[in-house]
């Protein structure tokens, strides 16, 4: 190829890749800006986990158990000073890899259980990543009783979708 043409193609390529990269950074900026992003959940499950994590790839979790008896989110008035109890649905959080929505069970102001009403896209990648990350996130939230429990590395979208929904459920319960 002639040198000037090669230079042109090279600059066009660089511009295209640069634009793509910039668009990618902007598009995922929300996930990266989360204040808790510095913490990382240990891959081996360093949290004293009460949730049985699935062993890697051997089973993908089926989508979350359907909420059979979910109480209306307004069940507990947030103004009440008494510790709230009941089940509370978080908001549906949209991510690139599908929607996430949690339901938390609260007993006397303590989150005792978290189930997934929506747990991301149903494609193989999303199922495997969520299947790995969600049990870790759930046990971390139960342990720390906060929505910001850090990131599962390699599952930033799942983490973001999950934690945002937990945050809104906790608000609904008057815990946050």
């Amino acid at each position: 190829m002639k040198r000037n043409r090669a230079a042109l193609v090279t600059s066009v390529s660089t511009a295209m890749l640069g634009a793509g990269w910039a668009a990618g950074v902007v598009g995922t900026a929300f996930a990266a800006q989360d204040p808790a992003s510095t913490a990382t959940l240990g891959a081996a499950g360093t949290q004293s986990s009460s949730v049985e994590t699935s062993t890697g790839a051997s089973t993908f979790p089926s989508a979350a158990p359907s909420a059979s008896a979910s109480a209306p989110a307004a069940a507990a008035p947030s103004s009440a000073p008494a510790a709230p109890s009941g089940t509370f649905d978080g908001a549906t959080t949209q991510t690139r890899y599908g929607n996430y929505q949690v339901e938390i069970t609260v007993a006397a102001g303590t989150i005792t259980d978290i189930s997934m009403l929506q747990s991301g896209s149903s494609d193989g990648t999303s199922r495997q990543i969520s299947g790995y990350a969600l049990p870790r996130l759930i046990s971390a939230v139960l342990h720390k009783q906060t929505a910001n429990v850090g990131y599962v590395s390699g599952a930033s979208y799942t983490t973001q979708g999950f934690e945002t929904s937990v945050q809104s459920a906790m608000q609904a319960a008057g815990l946050a």
């Binding site: 066009v12 295209m16 890749l17 634009a19 793509g20 668009a23 598009g27 995922t28 690139r96």
Partner: peptide
């Protein structure tokens, strides 16, 4: 450039 375009789109999706 067809290939570069595809890689750019991949980068743009994060």
């Amino acid at each position: 450039l067809s290939g570069v375009g595809a890689v750019s789109l991949m980068l743009a999706t994060g």
